Simulated scan of single mutants.
Amino acid sequence: MLAPDDRKSLKRTPLYDLHVSLGGKMVPFAGYDMPVQYPAGVLKEHLHTRASAGLFDVSHMGQLRLRPKSGKVEDSARALERLVPQDIVAIAEGRQRYAQFTNADGGILDDLMVANFGDHLFLVVNAACKDADEAHLRANLADACEIESLADRALIALQGPKAESALAKLCAAAPAMKFMDAGPHEVAGIKCFVSRSGYTGEDGFEISVPAADAERLAQMLLQNPDVMPIGLGARDSLRLEAGLCLYGHDIDTATTPVEAALEWSVQKSRRTGGARAGGFPGADKILTHFDHGASRRRVGLRPEGRAPVREGALLFADQAGGEPIGKVSSGGFGPSLNAPIAMGYVPTALSALGTKLFAEVRGQKLPLTVAAMPFVKNTYKR
């Protein structure tokens, strides 16, 4: 438990009072006081999101605007390509793309979403990294972009198969949006930025809303009987079932996109020939991994039995022991599967589906199998 003085140092999102009124159990997360669960509990919140619609407060995330000094959004896109291995120029207006900031060794400084709003780029970055990300942008892109932190905005996510019908009651544009569409839209008469995306593997939306309007909008969404408030606990189990990386756990400054099995996120224009290949931090190492493979790889893991295998558990090739060959990066119980699941890093030679491995849990070597991800099929609206 945090001492009262320590808790006072935590930041609060614009929805803090709403969380408390709804019975949220508040815990420290990335410097914020956040709800880990509500009275329904993590299991019910998780299953409700898979069956209906869950409302998440993700206002602790960083929101940034990159406005081109030239007036041409393509110039902001080209500038951002100095820092990420993705093709930002090719993001059409009204669309967004997943990206990573990389360092000189090819490691991941943070992962982020980048949207093209026509006259500027809109970025969403991780809470724990947002100050460093903003400084990184200012240090490297100030010649081409006006960089604005949108600290006066909240961010809420509406996820699940009934997310569209719930949001459609307040936003006429919602049903026509496809996965990774993004742009300015009115929601209940409030000027918002809406993307059809999320972190659960389910269809859904993320809504950037002025902080002053956030609680009113959340209350309107929660008036729908299909919508339940969801805390950090279920957010984590949902993203694990979806096989999605959590920064600082599954990816970090010592992990390249290829090691992390994120090759799909690096477009061909940035990695093979042509004038725009390379040119981002760590390009030599990352492109070598593309050409020749990396020595290790993130994989899905299905433990046998019922015991969860948690983050940090050492992995072995042999039940008899020997040297560990890898480590679990995320692990827990998958409520949708009624079984434990995990992700971890293993030598590429041991990364094939069906490979038998062992995890050390409380002094015992428990068997598990390299498995396909996502563990639960995604339902994105293509």
Rank of each mutant, 00 (worst) to 15 (best):
E164D: 10
G273D: 13
A77Q: 15
P335V: 00
E74G: 07
R138I: 01
A3L: 12
H249E: 12
V42W: 01
L150N: 03
L353V: 13
G278V: 11
L109F: 09
Q223I: 11
A320V: 07
A115G: 10
Q96S: 13
L18C: 03
S52L: 14
R97E: 11
V58N: 07
P68T: 06
F29P: 01
K11P: 06
F280V: 09
A151S: 14
V58H: 06
L232R: 09
D119Q: 08
I91G: 09
A144R: 12
E259D: 12
I147D: 00
A371H: 08
N103V: 14
A115D: 02
A163D: 03
V227P: 02
E311Q: 15
G248I: 04
I325K: 07
V346S: 01
G322R: 01
D33V: 09
L123A: 05
P210C: 01
D57C: 08
A371G: 08
F333D: 09
L64P: 00
A172N: 15
S149K: 15
M228D: 03
L350S: 09
M220A: 15
V361N: 08
A275G: 13
E146N: 15
L112G: 00
E148S: 13
H292L: 10
R12K: 15
R153I: 01
L244Q: 05
A234E: 00
